[in-house]
């Protein structure tokens, strides 16, 4: 197989070019996430015949349609539930889920927390743009306090979801959060998440200039992308400043969004435990038959 080192070869290998260009708005981060996923898959040399891409409903859930591999476009919020079914039917498959914040934590919140609790071996790539972009900018559960949406014209008064903290508390094996504006760390992170056994989740902060940026007066595309640089901080740096920094520095970074790998552990997954259970019961049954 020829080595893929340019984007042109990468596109020919993985992209359904007849579907291109995308439906995404100008300045959207979803295409970037797709690009990062392609590079990670290429570096891992994943067999595309044994990889399934699952998605729900929303802008981000259009992504499997552009990948030249098996995909499943499911009902709203149920992508993780369908993926659990696929994994149960054929444990050899690699499953990558593309989902949005409204899809995964809004309507599909219960599927998400129970899949994380059971530690099912799937990779969730969650694209968080703080709003329901496809339907016109309604208030999402991840929208920051005070942000404006079509269903919250005077500002949001609900406290937002911290998806990474939630997944961490539920004991997911790999939890990370990155912004789409930096390319190198996310590619490495997606690579690690795919290799990881058990539930792995990566949250991408993605700009949505049309539905979120416009209403919240974040400026044009360039300013909106810069907003993500100015309002994020690496978790190591955050912890260091919180421990040793001055009050002034602490005040400065207090409201910034933390980026980085939040959890990286090894815990047996649901299907490993299930195999052990079947084995234990079968040996018990065999012993009973001998008697």
């Amino acid at each position: 197989m020829p080595e893929v080192r340019t984007a042109d070869k990468l596109k020919k290998k993985y992209l359904r070019e007849e579907m291109w260009p995308t439906i995404f708005c100008n300045g959207c981060g979803n295409g970037v996430v797709l690009d990062y996923a392609f590079w990670a898959i290429e570096e891992l040399d994943l067999d595309m015949d044994k990889t399934v891409f699952v998605s729900g409903i929303g802008c981000s859930s259009r992504l499997p349609g552009y990948i030249n591999a098996d995909g499943l476009h499911t009902t709203h919020g149920r992508s993780i539930a369908f993926a659990t079914g696929i994994k149960a039917a054929n444990p050899d498959l690699n499953i990558i889920i593309f989902t949005g914040d409204g899809d995964c934590t809004g309507i599909g919140g219960n599927h998400f927390i129970h899949a994380a609790r059971r530690n099912i071996d799937v990779t969730v790539i969650l694209i968080n743009n703080f709003t329901y972009g496809m339907t016109g900018g309604q208030l999402a559960p991840t929208a920051p306090l005070g942000s404006i949406a079509t269903t919250a014209p005077y500002g949001n008064i609900e406290h937002p979801f911290d998806i990474c903290e939630l997944a961490k508390a539920l004991g997911a094996n790999y939890v990370a959060r990155w912004s789409v504006t930096y390319p190198y760390q996310p590619i490495k992170s997606v690579k690690e998440a795919i290799q990881k056994k058990g539930f792995s989740m990566i949250e991408f902060l993605s700009p949505c200039p049309t539905a979120y940026g416009r209403r919240n007066k974040l400026g044009d595309i360039k300013k909106h992308w810069k907003w993500y640089d100015d309002n994020t901080i690496l978790i190591e740096e955050y912890n260091k400043i919180m421990e040793y920094g001055t009050d002034e520095e602490k005040e400065k970074i207090k409201n910034k969004i933390q980026l980085g790998v939040f959890q990286d552990i090894e815990k047996p997954g649901f299907f490993e435990q299930y195999e052990k259970l079947v084995e234990r019961l079968q040996t018990k049954k065999d012993k009973g038959m001998k008697k």
Binding site: T6, A7, K11, L15, W20, T22, F24, G31, L34, W39
Partner: peptide, 15 residues
């Protein structure tokens, strides 16, 4: 190759 990686429409190839 930053532009190649960050292009949302995968339109750039760096050779």
């Amino acid at each position: 190759r930053l532009c190649e990686l960050i292009c949302p429409d995968l339109a750039i190839t760096v050779i």
